[in-house]
Design a protein around this nucleic acid. Sequence first.
DNA 1: TCCGCCCCTGTGAACGTTCACAGAACCATC
DNA 2: GATGGTTCTGTGAACGTTCACAGGGGCGGA
Lengths: 324, 324
Amino acid sequence: MARASGVSRGTVSRALNGDPYVSTAARAAVQRAVVETGYVVNRNARSLVTQRTGTVVMVLCEPQEKLFEDPSFNLLMRVATRRLATKDVALVMMVAGDDGDRERVVRYLRGGHADGVLLLSTHAGDPLVGALESLALPAVACGAVLGREGVIPYAAADDREGARQMTRYLVEQGRRKIATITGPLDTPGGLNRLEGFCDVLGRKATKKLIAQGDYTRHGGYAAMLELLKRAPDLDGVFVGSDLMAAGALAALREQGRRVPEDVAVGGFDDSAVAASTHPLLTTVRQPLERVAQETVRMLLELIDGGERPESVVLPTELVIRESA
Amino acid sequence: MARASGVSRGTVSRALNGDPYVSTAARAAVQRAVVETGYVVNRNARSLVTQRTGTVVMVLCEPQEKLFEDPSFNLLMRVATRRLATKDVALVMMVAGDDGDRERVVRYLRGGHADGVLLLSTHAGDPLVGALESLALPAVACGAVLGREGVIPYAAADDREGARQMTRYLVEQGRRKIATITGPLDTPGGLNRLEGFCDVLGRKATKKLIAQGDYTRHGGYAAMLELLKRAPDLDGVFVGSDLMAAGALAALREQGRRVPEDVAVGGFDDSAVAASTHPLLTTVRQPLERVAQETVRMLLELIDGGERPESVVLPTELVIRESA
DNA sequence: TCCGCCCCTGTGAACGTTCACAGAACCATC
DNA sequence: GATGGTTCTGTGAACGTTCACAGGGGCGGA
């Protein structure tokens, strides 16, 4: 490359990296050589000396073995990839399901192969988080890391307020006995949505009216049956995810309850599933695109040596369809 | 590291790479130093000399601007990441939606930053394919690349036979006038499923009974309305994707047709949506997990200097639920 | 004894960058 | 005409590996 452009390595490097101390002649020569030879800098060589890789890792913390179909993941990944690409940083995906996976992730990061980490669906007490912290690598999460909110900055939808919106709406519709199906309580979506539910209902949110699901359709189905057994006279239910809500709808239908006449059902996520159920699901939309954008922004700031950025919590929106 | 283990660089390198010409004493010393110092090889330095990166790129060819929610993508990505991880190769994600994206992908690959490419949802005539071919980089596709079947090896579900299974089933159920809603015809799923449909129906598959959708819920809805207008007496419809089928169900309900009594509906994919509709969707399951596994296997073979592997086409399975 | 062959080891060079440094060329000022 | 400051350039060293090569020791056979 230095040969092709007729200037020294140093000058090529400077020209390519926008150093001001390069004559216009030299700059032009380099530019010409670049297009002529189709030259692309070798990131490996560069990383070797700069200690920067131009890469961030997105770690998908998959609790348990089962790969639950998180509809939001798709969008988060695409938006993040795009955003990062415009800054010429590559995104490598890693799945951290079991100890072996986690060990690999840590090894990869300790090898200095990435400048930062994007955490996805991390649940409370994940051993990876501790390992990550001791690496002192810039890390940002999509959705709070329960118990580490003050340590790992995050961007997330306002789960709690979203749950309040939905619960309030059910109350306004005249529902008197409202139950909820939560997600796993070691996830922010599980915990915060339950809290929002309780915020609105206060003492009326009795234990009898709270069932725990696992974000799967079948979990929602089972939880709904359980609730109907415990409180046959319930007339509203706030379900912590659309997929579980789809299961709940099936259970209600099976038990001969009409939706929304007998029981109003509210979901959460506004995923593709919500628009496919019958009746169509009234739900809460999360600004996932912005969550991804903000997460990426925060991570890049952190990598560029910025202060620990403030976490961002973004507003949700009630989407009224047919089920409530 | 050489210092920590008390042997020379060369010996460390040999020990780490499993060269047989290393004494057990030296091997042990290196091993000890590795755990003591928490040493991890620097891939950059290694790549610099070996010209191998231990990285493959998964390119998501996203036609148009809209990011359509491909439910299969999620699974494909997870399985591929996992499989590759066991061989210690990293997966970097790239999205190729517009020309700028494509240019970035090509630049990245030309920079020699990856050993191979995994193509996803590539549609006929994608300019990226030509660029990729001229790079002469190992490439394998998930799902055939229309028009390049002989050039780019792939693993895919047997779309055509799957469509036959479903169409045959509808015929066996006594349906006399069966229509279809296809995906975009520049995708293998769109084209092959239509062909399977025609295989079974022969001359009964008239143009009037074929409507084209775009893999979205709304596309399915609109196509269904169109079909009902063209052929009000139809009593069965094979829809080329579950999401479109969900839309079709909504259209049928709106028009007062009962499913499956008046019209039987069959989907394709067996995605989460299929288990959330009412009635539950009878559909065709694709062995996506195996598709991902095979794709990865083929790519690794190719990278290891193997011959161009045979493409694999994997059997589908009819999943009978309620809608047909 | 000497030769040749295995095992094993250390060393120099190379990979393609960036960085720090030294210095050349030019201009302005004293 | 010396001095000092800009602006620009080339050069050597370094980053952490792998690879090819040379060679030391041990052992068996001629």
